[in-house]
Every structure is written in C-alpha cells, then in structure tokens.
C-alpha cells in the first residue's frame, strides 16, 4: 500500500526576518532520530524542526553525520542496505517512515541537489523534462515547454540557455550545471529541497549565484543545505544547526537557532569553538 503524502499550500511569500521554527509553521521535523549503518550509530537522538519557506543550514566537522541527517529527510539512506532509523521524521504531520509510505513519493515532495553537478547526458530540455515525464506527465508539448521554461526561470538559468535547449546539459559550466540540476529538482514541483554541499565544486562567483538563487527559491520552497563553508551558512541561511561527533563517532546536534544569533552569540561553547576556528 502506498500512502500519499499531501503537500500543503506552497508559494507563500517569505516574510522579512526568520521566525522561531517551533511555532507550528514547520514543514518537517526530526523527532528523537537515530540513524544506524549496521551496528554503527551515525546519528544520535536528534530532534529538529524545519521551518517552512526558510533556509536551514547544517554545519559541523567532517564525519559528524550532517549529510546522513540530510538524507534521512527524504529517505535517501534507504538506498544503503544496512541503514535503519529509530525515532521519526514528520512531514506535514505525517511520518515519512510509517509502514506503507513509498520513499519515491517522499522524494517527489522532498527533492535533492547533490554535491557534484550531475546532469544526465541528455539535452538541457530533457534534463528538466525528465522528472515530469517519469512522474507521468500527461500535458501537451506546449505545456511541457512551459514547465521546462518555468523551472529554468526559477533556477535563474533561462536567460543563459533559452536559445540552446537542445544542447547537452554536460556542455554547460559547473555553475550552470548545478543550476540545471536545481531546475530538474524543482520541475517536479517539490515542497522541500535538500542540498548536499551544492557549491563545493563551484568557483566563488558561481557559488554566490547559487546563494542568490536560494534566496529566491525560499519564497516557494523550504530548503535544507549541508555546507562545509561556515560563511555560506552565515550568508545564506535563516537557521543553522551545528552537529558534532561524539566519542563513539556518533553525530549529534549541539545547537540549533536563528543564524544571526548562532553566529554572533552562540549559546554552547562547542559551537563557539567550531565557528571561530578553535575546534579541537
């Protein structure tokens, strides 16, 4: 049995400033989440709300489990045979790990952009249209054209590619390829976009373009981003979660809060040590 996940109303206009995420306007929430790979506990007891139409950044040292945590939000860890979770992740009031929930359906609502741009060896047009097609798109060619254009416009790529849509996606620069992947992710009309170090393979200018794009995208989508670049978290996110690694190498959440507060006045000395570069 497949349980349908209902997306709530989207396209809410972002308000100025970040609201506290605990007030019920959360699209996702991890509840006492543990993630295991076999006997190894990669994530330990994380409870974390994700505010709607906001950008939440995960920061922390290598190996602290922030990518594992991100992937738990759309069940990407299911693809690892030994992975299992305890606790829960709730999406719009519904457990995504409940029996009968189809992980593919989860990933349609909660899309993902990866560290390295990974366009298909297909045309720019087909890269974007692909998601719609495999989701059983039934519209006319003209409607598909409109969908592709809308996704490329939202991904701030349309102006650069509108006259070469039949060229290979692999012919684009790294930054353009990553924006193509973002267009591909949003073409299926997700609710949430997970970004796993989306700028780590990009140069500084391409990185700033992606960050600007994120600010536009958050008016329609909720964004979670894993980043090694603390300044990126500081620049681009509304909320920041700092993860650390425990003595058994398990990842745990140290501190979570509005990004301006976390970077100016962190409450936990471990956060202070990490963000000021005095870690370890």
């Amino acid at each position: 049995m497949t349980v349908a996940l209902e997306a709530g109303p989207r396209a809410r206009t972002a308000r100025n400033g970040a609201n506290p995420p605990m007030g019920g306007d959360n699209v996702l929430e991890a509840r006492a989440l543990h993630v295991y790979y076999g006997a190894f506990r990669a994530i330990e007891n994380v409870t974390l709300p994700i505010a709607r139409n906001r950008i939440t950044a995960f920061i922390g040292p290598s190996g602290c489990g922030k990518s594992t945590m991100l992937r738990a939000f759309n069940r990407m860890n299911d693809l690892v045979p030994t992975a299992r979770v305890e606790g829960d992740i709730v999406y719009r009031g519904q457990s995504i790990y409940a029996p009968g929930v189809d992980p593919v359906e989860v990933r349609r609502h909660i899309g993902m952009v990866f560290q390295k741009p990974n366009p298909f060896p297909k045309s720019i047009y087909d890269n974007v249209a692909w998601g719609a097609r495999i989701n059983g798109f039934r519209g006319t060619r003209r409607e598909l054209d409109d969908l592709v254009e809308a996704a490329l416009v939202q991904a701030a790529l349309w102006d650069e590619v509108h006259d070469k849509l039949d060229q290979s996606g692999l012919s684009l620069s790294g930054g353009q390829q990553q924006r193509l992947c973002i267009a591909r992710a949003i073409a299926v009309k997700p609710d949430v976009i997970l970004m796993d170090e989306p700028c780590s393979a990009l140069d500084p200018i391409a990185t700033l373009r992606i960050e600007d794009l994120m600010q536009q995208l958050k008016e329609r989508y909720t964004i979670l981003i894993v980043t090694h670049n603390m300044q990126q978290a500081a620049r681009a996110s509304d909320y920041t979660a700092f993860f650390n690694m425990g003595d058994r190498r398990q990842g745990y959440l140290v501190e979570f809060g509005p990004t301006p507060e976390l970077f100016t006045n962190p409450k936990d000395p471990r956060t202070e040590d990490y963000i000021t570069g005095r870690f370890g």
């Binding site: 603390m230 300044q231 500081a234 970077f263 100016t264 006045n265 202070e272 963000i275 000021t276």
Partner: peptide, 9 residues
C-alpha cells in the same frame, strides 16, 4: 578573517 561570535563582538 571573517570573525564570528565572541571574536566578532
């Protein structure tokens, strides 16, 4: 140096 937290203050 992009200082943050106590350093920035």
């Amino acid at each position: 140096q992009a200082p943050v937290a106590t350093d920035m203050r």
